[in-house]
Amino acid sequence: MLQVNRRPESLCDVKMHYCPGCGHGIAHRLVAESMDELGVRERTIGVAPVGCAVFADDYFNCDMIQGPHGRGPAIATGLKRCKPDCIVFSYQGDGDLASIGMAETIHSAGRGENITVIFINNAIYGMTGGQMAPTTLVGQKATTCPQGRDPLVNGYPMRICELLSQLDGTRYLERVSIHSAAHVIKAKRAVKKAFRCQIEGRGFSLVEILSTCPTNMGISPLDAVKFVSDQMVPQYPLGVFKDFEGGKSDVSRD
């Protein structure tokens, strides 16, 4: 018998604490598989965020550091400048990356820091209990906008890939989703390419993964993936926003 899939070596053999249907588990696996396939596990340092993925430092089977909320790219910068031969990735949620850590995100991208950022956008705060995220959709309910996000009060959701694509320092930006098996496979290609971008010394890479948080969206995992495909994807179009190969900087919608 041929084993079709196996647990990547870059993921510790422990049970993850995430809620049923949470997208973090899938995203973790994609990162770990990429590390395995590129053969960089033993020289990779990961930065765990604040939020549900804070425990990622227990899950990835490589050196890990967990730091303050939103500061992942700054920590990754310090790591990379001191260990240029290491592969450094920062794993962050939407509150972490696009709210409290926006300055660190933009400036590490602007510097063209040769790091890889894995950005999990599930349009809601997870660990703190479903508050409004910078990426919460207009009309979407959260515990701090119980009537739904009202742009007049709460402003508009932020499109990070579009924003970062304006910066000369970025080399690879792609938005993917994990709402179906086909999209998971595509997402994997993007994550792996982002790591390759760094390995080849090309500069800043970021993959935005549209993901789910069934618990705080208040819906079942199956409804949550439907929410991603029907509600989130129209707001956050999938595609490549910056590509070091071919120098394409325009969005190729998928």
């Binding site: 084993q3 079709v4 588990g25 899938i26 998971v184 496979i185």
Partner: peptide
């Protein structure tokens, strides 16, 4: 591919 908990192993 879609299992968030790596609970499924497939053989063929």
């Amino acid at each position: 591919q879609v299992c968030p908990d790596l609970a499924i192993t497939v053989f063929k």
